[in-house]
Design a protein around this nucleic acid. Structure first.
Lengths: 344, 344
DNA sequence: TTGTATGCGTTATCAC
DNA sequence: GTGATAACGCATACAA
């Protein structure tokens, strides 16, 4: 064996050499196979031997390399979650649900935020190699790469986007709720509505925009030619509102892609002295707790975020176990409050 | 070579065998060494050979295993961030800053939320093995494990907690600001203050509680014997407020460990018909954007979250580069608004 | 019950 | 310029 049994501590104990299974085996006077055995508890080992190994491992402060372990074919016990970012509470909540489920599985979770980085595909590939499976949210990974990963054996589950081939997805209904919400606002008598959000940025938003249009069609009302494209932050909502509310024929109701955008609208409306919901009706999406404290309280849509995360994790673990779970769609529900025009 | 040259596609192309460097080498009619070379671009390779290898790799859809690569001694290009959870926006903001810096370094970031799980230490160890370095927030990893990791060569930087030995830390000033904030509230004439938060849960909170006491001492006022121990969510604040405001000698001002807790207090105070800040002054911490929209607007403390994350990443990359950066403390600033008693 | 030998997929050091 | 081949740290079939 030329594995270089390590010139055992020529410096007298201060050797910074990282201990390996070989070091431990040598110190315990056994073979590496035995060390591996006591560690994994997979095969019977004489108790005395086990103690010796354990002692040696402890003295050397040795921890088996999970890297090498994975290379040797073992599962990593970890799963990955790929999100666009962690802002806006939505993703954070999903992560919570996801981890709750992972906890039951005794597995750890690595979260990777892509931020639309150009090297994201590469990072995702790496994450895939370091875990037993992946859940990918939104458009963080394009359909092509999803297929490629799937073909290469990566267990993968999609989130907040449609299934790709036989790769299952977990998402929530957006279009029907968006239509219901929009219809509700229209029934308050508002005619000039605007939709704030970027349908291209996320499949969920695209569906909300579609539902917004559906409601207009159903009401025989002309829908705006397009959405007011904006990001997901409060600042984005503020900026959009600044433009929008300066127009001659300014809209009387704003359907925002999420609560943060709605918050931004609130801020701008106040600066302009516009009364909510009298002068301007506003709705959000996500139902952040703070929205309920505003005056007027923000009408929003509550998504089962934690449950969505939990379901996604569940599907992933099913795939890891070799099963072929089917996609799931969980319902979102309207949270009607004062900002849409309803009496408080 | 007994490396099992793989019974090349006995199924006729449908072989699900994951391609390795061997498969590619064989297909390109070269040795694995050459494949590695063209991939790493480290040594000159004849152009024709390079093309052949590239073609083979492409046809097989081969991607080098980052696992094996790491095992062979290469850096992973990834760093880890260990947080207690991702709720409350604070951690999410820190992650943003962290990733912004990582982006400049062209590295990916894995976020691990421990949730106080018992197996957390194990998960952290694994993460350490899969990355080039770690930033650990709060008490997610105890001092002992920090030392152990450090001794085993893990590049590590602490966050929102004091340095451990020579392991550097990045944090923000809490105690002085907490004193300033508390003093400010006291100067509004309130005498019975309470502190809502759990000093044991996070070092930051412990310092805020200390500052709270400092202010009382400076004002010659008796401080409460202890904090009102509560979690970090809005629900926690609501619950605490329910108890607190039902007391005979109820406090007249509540210094909350963060904004979410303060939100909960708002909710409960409204239910009770208490006027803010007249009947009850409230302050938060974190300066969430929604706080500014409340009535009254929430007085809070603004932390340089993104910058903190960015600095932490910077220190980590310095350590990875072999340097020994020193700890940093960034200042937080008061965001005085209406809820403390100031005129709006 | 324990040891031997080999594979896992790369990188890197020698030779040629 | 290119090819063998030894690490890297572990798991495991096969022997003993």
């Amino acid at each position: 064996m030329s594995r270089a049994p390590m010139v055992l501590d020529r410096t007298g104990g201060m050797s910074p050499t990282k201990p390996s299974i070989y070091t431990v085996a040598q110190r315990a006077g056994v073979s590496i196979a035995t060390v591996s055995r006591v560690l994994r508890g997979t095969v019977a080992v004489r108790d005395e031997t086990r103690q010796r190994v354990l002692a040696a491992a402890d003295e050397l402060g040795w921890q088996p390399s999970s890297l090498a372990r994975s290379l040797a074919g073992e599962a990593t016990g970890a799963v990955g979650l790929v999100v666009p970012d962690l802002l806006g509470h939505y993703a954070a909540q999903v992560v919570e649900g996801f981890e709750e489920r992972a906890l039951a599985e005794d597995g750890s979770v690595y979260v990777l935020a892509t931020h639309g980085r150009p090297r994201a595909p590469e990072f995702v590939r790496d994450l895939a190699a370091r875990t037993d499976g992946l859940v990918v949210m939104d458009r963080t990974v394009d359909d092509d790469q999803v297929r490629r990963l799937d073909e290469h054996g990566t267990r993968i589950v999609l989130f907040a986007r449609p299934p790709v081939g036989h790769v299952p997805a977990v998402r929530t209904g957006n279009r029907p709720v968006a239509e219901e919400l929009t219809r509700h606002v229209i029934e308050h008598g508002h005619e000039r509505l605007a939709f704030l959000g970027d349908p291209v940025a996320a499949p969920d938003v695209a569906e909300r925009w579609a539902g917004f249009q559906d409601a207009h069609a159903a009401a025989g009302l002309p829908a705006p030619s397009g959405p007011v494209v904006t990001g997901f932050g409060e600042g984005d909502g503020y900026t959009a509102a600044t433009d929008l509310l300066a127009q001659d024929a300014r809209p009387r109701a704003l359907i925002c892609a999420n609560d943060l955008v709605a918050f931004g609208v609130y801020a701008r409306a106040r600066e302009l002295g516009l009364g909510l919901p009298g002068d301007l009706a506003v709705t959000g999406w996500d139902d952040l707790s703070a929205g309920g404290l505003l005056t007027p309280a923000l009408t929003s849509v509550q998504q089962p975020t934690r449950e969505l995360g939990e379901r996604a994790a569940d599907l992933l673990y099913q795939r890891i176990a070799g099963r072929r779970p089917t996609s799931e769609v969980l319902p979102s529900t309207l949270a009607i409050r004062g900002s849409c025009g309803c009496p408080t």
